[in-house]
């Protein structure tokens, strides 16, 4: 008899904690979203109330949509993030394969060289990076951002992917080699599909800082045509710090696309992170 009771208590404790913390995670977003649809008076007088007939207003959105080019900013962010991810994953997996599969001179040195990049924030090299981009005539282009983010993401990607590649059973590769399959075919057709879960993990870890970065867009690509959403929102907030309708509306606009994408891909994303474990 005792078993079910304690089980029930345990399960309600579980849900209490999980639901409680989930509420804490969502509350700030909820607060911004409800207040974005209120009039100025509504925002100040009752910040916690839902918009009602009296306080409902979309004035903030009207102001923001007329002035800022959120759609363009969003497109820039998406382009930069996707391209960086593709390059990091492809080149990272190739290098990880070479470093964990083959023995050659200087291997340890190269590993150490990459490890260096995990430890030092790339921001410290800003001035040298900018000078380089100027020489390459890449300033105010999205390519500059893609190159920097790729360089920034590679070390961690290589570290995590090597770990996975080492776990792939030897027999698989040896069997292929005996059949006379070339190294490139082995890599692209056997190895890559096998490490897919790991690739998803790396994708999540590299995507977040790239999408949210404020620094390099500010230094390398501040032009209006190349602004990312993070930079756009930051400058917009700076400009309208006192206009809460506009600020709350722009915060909502910056958050919404992320929410939509996340809702669509969250399953794959989470499966990616956890799949590494379920072998």
């Amino acid at each position: 008899m005792r078993q079910p009771v304690s089980h029930l208590a345990g399960s309600s404790f579980t849900h209490l904690v999980l639901a409680g913390y989930t509420l804490l995670s969502l509350f700030p977003l909820f607060l911004v979203l409800i207040n974005a649809f209120k009039s100025r008076a509504g925002i100040f007088d009752a910040p916690l109330a839902l918009p009602n007939g009296e306080t409902f207003s979309t004035i903030g959105f009207e102001k923001v949509l007329g002035k800022a080019h959120f759609l363009g900013f969003f497109g820039n962010s998406l382009t930069v993030t996707v391209l960086s991810l593709v390059l990091i994953l492809l080149f990272g997996a190739m290098a990880a394969w070479a470093l964990s599969e083959y023995r050659f001179r200087g291997q340890r040195l190269i590993l150490l060289f990459f490890a260096f990049g995990i430890m030092v924030p790339i921001r410290l090299g800003t001035v040298a990076i900018l000078e380089l981009m100027v020489k390459l005539e890449l300033v105010n282009t999205l390519s500059a951002l893609v190159l920097v983010y790729t360089a920034q993401g590679l070390p961690l990607a290589i570290l995590i992917l090597s770990e996975f590649i080492q776990q792939i059973p030897k027999e698989l590769k040896e069997a292929a080699r005996c059949d006379g399959v070339g190294e490139f075919t082995i890599f692209f057709q056997i190895i890559l599909p096998l490490i897919r879960p790991a690739i998803a993990t790396v994708a999540v870890f590299t995507m977040v800082p790239v999408w949210n970065d404020l620094w390099f867009p500010l230094i390398l690509a501040p032009g209006e045509a190349t602004q990312t959403i993070t930079l756009g929102v930051q400058q917009f907030i700076g400009q309208y710090a006192t206009d809460w309708n506009a600020v709350l509306a722009s915060l909502s606009l910056a958050v919404l696309p992320v929410l939509v994408i996340y809702v669509f891909f969250s399953r794959q994303l989470i499966r990616g992170i956890t799949a590494g474990a379920v072998k």
Binding site: A95, G117, G125, L147, T150, A151, L154, I158
Partner: peptide
């Protein structure tokens, strides 16, 4: 296999950092 990663990492991260 190594060249693309090494090239991008060395020129846009490692070198500026060492500098």
């Amino acid at each position: 296999f190594l060249a693309p990663a090494l090239l991008i990492y060395a020129s846009f991260s490692a070198w500026p950092l060492l500098d």
